[in-house]
Amino acid sequence: MSQQIHTNLAPEFPLPFSQALRAGDFVYVSGQVGVDPTTREVVGETIEEQTIQCLRNIETILTAAGLSLDHIVKMNAFVSRQEDFPNYNKAYESIMRRPFPTRTSIGCNIGSYLVEIDAIAYAGSVRGESN
């Protein structure tokens, strides 16, 4: 049985999805975009600004689940413009610690957002710990 994770500190949209679900030791975080949690306005005009906001939104949701970014084992990112990949990677690396989670990054049209990122976290350990 899965348990819904929800926090008012992360962006909320009138769409049919949960911010995150806990299933056993795993927490699955729905795709987050670079919006301010309070205003739901896009943060900045660059891929760097929006990537950092996406990761902060994911972090806020994981905190509500009692976890951190260091618990993430897998991420998927959808980047609107191919030319933004180098700057997306720089912003990602400025927030995420080594060893990095496994990751898939896809170029695709996601409307007015420059990036959307989802995550899978494992509560059993943090990256870099011996299991």
Rank of each mutant, 00 (worst) to 15 (best):
I47G: 00
T46V: 12
I61D: 06
E48T: 13
T60M: 10
R40P: 02
I95K: 01
R103H: 13
D70L: 08
T38R: 14
M75V: 15
E45P: 03
F100P: 00
Q19G: 08
V27K: 06
V27F: 05
R103V: 13
V35M: 05
C54S: 12
P11W: 01
N76R: 14
Q53N: 07
M75I: 15
G44N: 03
N87W: 04
V42E: 14
P11Q: 01
V35E: 09
I72W: 11
T102E: 14
R81D: 15
Y28S: 11
A65M: 05
K74M: 14
L67G: 04
P99W: 06
I95F: 03
Y28W: 11
Q53L: 01
P37D: 04
P101E: 04
F17M: 12
L55T: 01
C54H: 11
H6I: 11
R103T: 13
E48W: 00
L21H: 06
T51P: 07
H6C: 03
N76V: 10
A10V: 01
I47S: 06
N87T: 02
I72F: 07
T104P: 00
N8H: 04
L67Q: 00
E49L: 07
A91L: 06
R98H: 13
R22E: 06
L15G: 05
R56S: 07
L69M: 11
T46S: 15
F100W: 03
F85P: 01
P37L: 09
F78W: 14
Q82Y: 09
K90Q: 15
T7R: 03
P37V: 08
M96Q: 07
V27H: 09
L55I: 07
G66K: 06
P37R: 00
Q32R: 15
R81C: 01
D84V: 06
L21G: 04
N76Q: 12
N76Y: 13
Q50P: 02
Q50T: 09
H71F: 03
G31M: 10
I61L: 07
E59R: 05
I72M: 14
G66E: 03
E93V: 10
P16H: 11
A77W: 09
P101M: 04
D36N: 15
V73H: 11
S94Q: 10
G66P: 06
P16E: 11
T63F: 04
N76C: 12
G34M: 01
S94L: 05
M75K: 10
P99F: 06
G24Y: 04
P11Y: 00
P101G: 05
L67C: 08
C54I: 10
C54V: 08
T39S: 14
Y92F: 15
Y28Q: 09
Q82V: 03
A23D: 14
P99V: 09
C54N: 15
Y28C: 10
T104A: 13
T102L: 12
T60E: 12
N76P: 00
Q50H: 08
H6R: 04
F26G: 01
T38C: 05
L55M: 09
L21P: 02
M75Y: 09
E93T: 13
P11C: 00
N87K: 02
Q82A: 13
R97L: 10
T38E: 14
V33K: 02
T102A: 15
K90V: 12
F100N: 10
A23V: 10
V42W: 12
Q19N: 06
A23Y: 12
F78N: 13
A65W: 02
R97Q: 15
T104H: 09
A64V: 12
